[in-house]
Design a binder for these strands. Structure first.
Lengths: 271, 271
DNA sequence: ACCTGAACACCGTTCAAGT
DNA sequence: ACCTGAACACCGTTCAAGT
């Protein structure tokens, strides 16, 4: 009964200990530090001497998302975070158990908002869900790796179920037998996360090459690199580079979605 | 002309500076440390006083893969690595530029071997490629996150091209227009990495729950957790849990592959 | 040419001490 | 109840010094 210290256990409600799954796998993921010399420091609001509003889990998660967006995965640090919140690093641990939990909360927040945006059950609803995630991932480049990691580390966790449920609901609205629901939802989910993550990374890298270079210029660069490959060893990659990489990322993305949906509705080829 | 120090620049050949792509994004990824208390220390061979064979890039990569396999992503440390190699941490930097490059080399090695195993151009060849990657990822649970990260960080890097080329070659052998090659290859690639990564993580977690619990028992646990969800909020996930999660991971995996292939060969639904 | 190992600048996390 | 900030046990990486 008597728990010695409340700590982040107070936030236990948002971390359901679902049915016999023990959370012994408390590893989160983080990108290793990336010392690039001059990364223009984000315009910190002059470090207010002491914070006026009290700390809260919500404010911490807000700040974490902000830091992630502006400074990347390696930018989220308890020290940087506490500086931005005008506290010591220890203070954060009162509201959040550890970095892993913070990352889960941040991911959960962003994904929830992204999925709440779209309407349900209409034709084209799969496109809506897919694009909702696509846009969120483009806006938050750290999101795709995070989601993937949380899918792996905690298949019964909130993020996993949020996404699985949302995509799956659209799949079940399709006219397909229930036996193929799982396969279809899984395939869509992995494609969406993979392709959207790839796109977000491309975009980020395109930007880092200078503000003048846009995405399509960058894609040309990639195609250019591929064209240098030896034709004997890499005939396919060269051929694809030759026909040029698609410059409209969204139609390219949706083409993949439609491909999978076609496969779902067409049914198995042999059986 | 005169390069002051050779260092890992000697290994520059394996790190092609492809066509105008500057490698300023030298971030790799690493899981944060996971202090689980008692992780049975791997049976280190009694720490030989001093190594007899000289260090080499190859031996370092070997040891890195070994460490990754036995101690996980967080287990790969320059200190742990140098201990296993009976050196100081600094010695490794003579043969390898940094941790990122080491991770790329390890990934490249494992992927190369996995893809070299299967025969080309036969019917069912896509299954062979897919299962080759699937098995490698199952054997090396750190592989899927690594491949994904390298896909994102370096789309013209060796790992990316190796996989893209191999899958794509099978796609181009299918009877489909070249215009759909890219979409099909991309969809297959993301599905394979996502699904195989998920499976590897499940397997690892199943094992960590005790050697008695096997994979299918673990899947039952997941399904059990899903059944606890509220029927109003999560009708789909509950329905899927109700019909039970597939216990044969490989057929489940291949079902997804076939679904995508069906979509490819059936052509676009509307256009 | 290759290796050594102390040192540096970071991390996440803890915890006695304050209010 | 909530916060502070020094301290701990790590990291990756560097580099003068050795052979």
């Amino acid at each position: 009964m008597s728990v010695s210290l409340c700590r982040a256990g107070a936030s236990g409600a948002s971390r359901p200990s679902v049915a016999g799954i023990s959370f012994q796998n408390k590893c989160g993921t983080a990108f290793q530090s990336c010392q690039n010399g001059r990364v223009t420091p984000p315009p910190t609001p002059k470090k207010p001497e002491r914070r006026t509003t009290p700390l809260s889990r919500e404010r911490i998660v807000d700040a974490a998302i902000d830091l992630l967006d502006t400074a990347g995965e390696s930018g989220l640090t308890f020290r940087a975070l506490s500086e931005r919140l005008a506290t010591g690093p220890g203070a954060i641990y009162w509201h959040v158990a550890n970095k892993s939990e913070l990352l889960v909360a941040a991911t959960n927040r962003v994904v929830s908002i992204a999925l709440a945006a779209q309407k349900a059950g209409q034709p084209g609803a799969i496109h809506d869900v897919a694009l909702g995630l696509y846009d969120a991932i483009e806006k938050h480049p750290w999101l795709a790796p995070q989601i993937t990691a949380q899918l792996s580390h905690n298949p019964t966790g909130p993020v996993t179920i949020l996404i699985f449920e949302d995509i799956g609901r659209q799949v079940s609205a399709l006219d397909v037998p229930a036996s193929s629901w799982f396969t279809a939802t899984t395939a869509l989910m992995h494609y969406i996360l993979g392709a959207a993550g790839q796109n977000a990374a491309n975009l980020a890298r395109a930007r880092s090459l200078g503000p003048d270079a846009d995405r399509s210029a960058y894609m040309d660069t990639v195609a250019g690199a591929w064209k240098q490959l030896s034709p004997e060893d890499y005939p396919f990659t060269r051929a694809v580079a030759e026909q040029g990489l698609d410059h409209d990322d969204r139609t390219q993305f949706l083409a993949g979605i439609d491909l999978i949906i076609t496969g779902v509705t067409a049914g198995p080829p042999t059986a």
